[in-house]
Design a protein around this nucleic acid. Structure first.
Lengths: 119, 119
DNA sequence: ATTTGTACTTACTTTTATACAAGTACTTAC
DNA sequence: GTAAGTACTTGTATAAAAGTAAGTACAAAT
């Protein structure tokens, strides 16, 4: 988890944008390389950690965990673990996360209305 | 306009995500620090370059132009210039850009449904 | 006793995004 | 003839995000 400089202009700009612009606020929760993809996969239901890994082959474990953690902290995602060995951990959308479905669906619709074609 | 390495893993991952995941595809068009803010302001109508600058005080001219250019290339935004001095240039949403309103509105709604409070 | 599987963690490097600072062209107004 | 206004451009530094690589714990299976 890379450290962020509390008093950089970048950081200040980000914070102020997130406080001023609702779209930026949302982007701070679901933006970046990996969060959209993770969320997209969680839209279709609860997944084990290892399932997500398989569904998103290019992601490194570091990134996967990092973003899952962050989305947990933002209350978008719920982590549940059974105390067994080997570990059994699942991730699912929280209520707030579920409410993102509207947003994500609108994105999917827009994508397909443009030149987007799924592989 | 910072150069990007065509053959980096980062770049390859990005491209493949954008080809595979509709949400990533959309994010590649409207993601980042500044694009959401610019789009948000364009939602309320055509703006001159200088108006955008005033509306977004923290943005540098480099970033503003860079993102406007990119969104032009992505056909989200239309640039119109009158051939006068001093220059008079306006930016507005294209049809495709307008169709993002659904997405952006959904974001705004979600934001306000969460703990977001505008300054 | 070594391997296997799951869900992580940590330290370090590379790549990308943004900030900072300065300069350009062209005319009208003073 | 100097300053002001608009819409840019260019070069460099810094910060953030992502990648790479390796290691950990625990128990059950071989």
């Amino acid at each position: 988890m890379t450290a962020i400089k509390e008093n950089s202009t970048l950081n200040a700009n980000k914070k102020s944008s997130q406080a001023t612009c609702p779209v930026s606020f949302v982007m701070s929760k679901i933006g970046g390389h990996w969060k959209p993809i993770i969320l997209y996969h969680l839209l279709s239901g609860t997944k084990r950690y290892s399932e997500l890994k398989k569904l998103i082959p290019a992601i490194t474990e570091k990134m996967l965990i990092q973003h899952l953690k962050q989305m947990q902290e933002d209350n978008l995602v719920i982590r549940e673990s059974q105390n067994v060995v080997p570990p059994f951990v699942t991730y699912s959308l929280s209520n707030e996360g579920e409410q993102l479905r509207t947003v994500l669906d609108a994105m999917v619709e827009w994508a397909f209305a443009q030149d987007f074609k799924m592989d």
